[in-house]
């Protein structure tokens, strides 16, 4: 029976360490729960959110201030983004959100620039002013066609 007690102890430790690791990974790595409790959500509607997905960074002045938590289609024509902004970061009501690219072929992120208003966005509010993704293909074709016109 003492041998069994030892086995029981080791198994108990194994299960405890395993579950503790799971919880740690969920909180620290996946930031489960961390998303909802610290910070607040704001919405933004883009004509073209090409390349932005859940998990993309939201940056202000080059500093990560949050993450995109959801991207979905609205009214069958626009992209609606929900962004989770860190606690303590205040965005003006006339802030501008734009889809940008890190480097030339790098990934997409949302750049937010502050406006001049003295009022700040409430949790759940919408950033009215948005700038869609700059599509390199569009640019190139525009350039070709415009040069053809000349």
């Amino acid at each position: 029976m003492t041998e069994y007690k030892r086995i029981e102890l080791v198994v108990g430790m194994f299960v405890f360490i395993g579950i503790a690791s799971m919880v740690w990974m969920a909180l620290k790595l996946g930031q489960v729960g961390g998303l909802g409790s610290t910070g607040y959500a704001v919405e933004a509607v883009f004509q073209d959110a090409g390349g932005v997905r859940a998990g993309s960074d939201v940056m202000l002045a080059g500093v990560v201030i949050g993450r995109v938590s959801d991207v979905h289609l609205q009214n069958d024509e626009e992209a609606k983004l929900i962004m989770q902004i860190d606690e303590g970061v205040k965005l003006t009501t006339d802030a501008i959100a734009s889809v940008r690219t890190k480097g030339i072929i790098g990934e997409r992120y949302i750049r937010v620039s502050q406006g001049a208003d003295r009022e700040y966005l409430e949790p759940g509010a919408e950033i009215e002013e948005t700038e869609s993704a700059i599509n390199i293909e569009d640019l190139v074709s525009k350039y070709i066609f415009s040069s053809g016109d000349k």
Partner: peptide, 15 residues
């Protein structure tokens, strides 16, 4: 990068 890119869905998928 690790923390930013690992989403809860990734953890759930693994588990």
């Amino acid at each position: 990068e690790t923390v930013a890119k690992v989403l809860p869905e990734d953890l759930y998928a693994g588990w």
